[in-house]
């Protein structure tokens, strides 16, 4: 009997599972695990000005980071960005998904059309929205240059106008119009994806449940709030975490739309990492910021995994 088992290769697989999985794991370890460890070590070091050698400095990079104006400022920018990005995206994609759920004859066409922005890269999306507001010649530039709408213009375009009367350098409130514009452009880019996720969740809500709720006299609003929303809550949570992760780490659109400007008014933490690490070449400080962002990421991912495990148990 033993030779049959061996031939089947199922109960006595030997080294085969190892060899088919190993190559992939090797690449993942080289590209994801090793850099993570290296970044942690980097964050505890600094280049010594005289010798150009890395020396161990303990937590000094983190102290420098948390004490800097640029860091606090970029955190506030990121928070404002995430707030607008998540709220508008979730609200709009839920509304559009509800519309797409009505099985109209043209629904597949609508889905395909609405999905196109997702397939476009963030750099091109940023460029496309930048073209709307380039000084003087952008299609929306007369709108943003209108003093009746945006107060006395102190620049010729939202790409150049600096927000007046901010609270302090550390607390850049109210936000610059460019940051709000970045929210709109980012939402446009991600909306198709989140809409489809929510639409997928909506389609798992069984028609019987909805019918019986209607027979029991539930209004449309009650049906939506009491039946549908609780049922798709797991997917909404997944979408929320996905948006937060993408919002914290997405940087391509900042590059092409505003370049962090005007001034520093769209410098979110991902862009700050670029400007510290790759244009000021302060590797230790950038390492500390990388670790900070990575901790945020892992926290979000762990929370998502925990939530989905909890839902699977139910």
């Amino acid at each position: 009997m033993d030779w049959i088992r061996k031939r089947l290769g199922l109960s006595a697989p030997g080294w085969l599972p190892f060899w088919v999985i190993f190559p992939a794991l090797l690449v993942i370890a080289a590209i994801q695990l090793y850099p993570t460890l290296y970044t942690i070590i980097l964050s505890l070091q600094q280049i010594e000005p005289g010798t150009g050698q890395f020396v161990f400095v303990g937590s000094r990079n983190f102290e420098r980071l948390f004490g800097s104006i640029a860091f606090t400022r970029s955190l506030v920018h990121t928070a404002i960005f995430l707030l607008g990005y998540v709220a508008i995206t979730l609200g709009a994609s839920f509304a559009i998904a509800l519309l797409l759920r009505q099985r109209l004859r043209l629904t597949p066409l609508y889905i395909t059309l609405i999905f196109v922005p997702w397939i476009i890269s963030d750099v091109v999306a940023g460029a496309v929205w930048r073209l709307f507001v380039v000084p003087d010649y952008g299609l929306f530039s007369p709108f943003f240059a209108n003093p009746a709408l945006f107060g006395e213009p102190n620049g010729i375009s939202i790409l150049t106008s600096v927000p007046p009367n901010q609270l302090s350098p550390r607390v850049p409130l109210p936000p610059a119009p460019a940051l709000l514009f970045l929210i709109v452009a980012s939402t446009w880019k991600i909306l198709p994806f989140t809409t489809l996720l929510i639409l997928g969740a909506l389609q798992t809500v069984s028609p019987e449940v909805q019918e019986s709720a209607k027979i029991d006299g539930a209004s449309n609003w009650q049906l939506l709030l009491r039946i549908i929303l609780p049922l798709i809550k797991p997917m909404l949570a997944v979408t929320l975490f996905y948006l937060l992760l993408g919002g914290i780490n997405g940087v391509g659109m900042v590059f092409s739309l505003t370049g962090g400007g005007p001034g520093t008014s769209t410098e979110v933490i991902s862009y700050l990492l670029y400007s510290i690490g790759f244009s000021k070449l302060d590797f230790g400080l950038a390492g500390a910021l990388s670790v900070f962002i990575a901790v945020l990421n892992f926290g979000l991912i762990a929370l998502t995994l925990k939530l989905s495990a909890a839902y699977e148990e139910q």
Binding site: I31, Q32, T39, N249, G277, N297
Partner: peptide, 22 residues
């Protein structure tokens, strides 16, 4: 499997510094 799922959510951004040095 769980580690792979966790890693699939990790963005490139925080690893760029180390990959650059590499």
């Amino acid at each position: 499997l769980t580690s792979l799922l966790a890693l699939s959510g990790v963005p490139l951004l925080t690893m760029l510094l180390a990959l650059y040095q590499m």
